[in-house]
């Protein structure tokens, strides 16, 4: 990956085109590709693209859709296990929960990587990220369990691994 440089015009145009295609695709899905709506769709997708460029200007290290794709099966697997775990605890007559906090000092760089860690930990069975202050991630555990520390650390390593494979990432 090339180091962050001043975004060129062509690159910005490419980002805009990608976003336009995304919005146009959404329009086609929502209208079942009705022919008499295409004109409105063109206008709506253009307006949405403009608004997205204003609200979320392109940054040089944009996460590509393809790089996220390998994470999808794990996401689904964790959602299912997380759903079963909390459903079982909610319905159990004795309510087997022991809420506790676990504060995790993360070594991931701020930004996308930390957001990814937070989202994944929130999907794991029994854990929910409530926020972060500086490098500290506040993880709420539905049932205090020594395994949580290892689970969070494992997810962190996995994310750090994908960062490294995409180029020279910050290391400490």
């Amino acid at each position: 990956m090339t180091p962050a440089t001043q975004p060129t015009l062509a690159w910005r145009a490419l980002i805009a085109a990608k976003r336009f295609l995304l919005f146009a695709g959404l329009w086609l899905v929502l209208t079942s590709a009705a022919l008499d709506g295409l004109g409105f769709g063109l206008a709506a997708a253009s307006a949405a693209t403009w608004l997205s460029l204003v609200l979320m200007p392109p940054v040089s290290r944009e996460v590509s859709l393809l790089s996220v794709l390998p994470l999808v099966p794990g996401f689904i697997d964790r959602s299912i296990r997380g759903g079963f775990d909390v459903a079982w605890r909610a319905l159990h007559p004795r309510l087997p929960i022991r809420p506790a906090w676990y504060v995790h000092d993360t070594r991931l760089p701020p930004g996308g990587a930390r957001v990814a860690l937070g989202s994944i930990v929130s999907l794991l069975p029994g854990t929910l990220v409530a926020g972060s202050f500086g490098n500290r991630l506040y993880v709420h555990c539905l049932n205090a369990d020594a395994g949580i520390r290892h689970a969070v650390a494992a997810e962190e390593r996995r994310i750090a691994g994908t960062l490294k494979s995409r180029g020279p990432g910050p290391e400490r």
Partner: peptide, 11 residues
């Protein structure tokens, strides 16, 4: 929030 985010998403 555990209950609402996880169980409802799967549902």
């Amino acid at each position: 929030l555990h209950a609402l985010t996880k169980a409802d998403n799967l549902g």
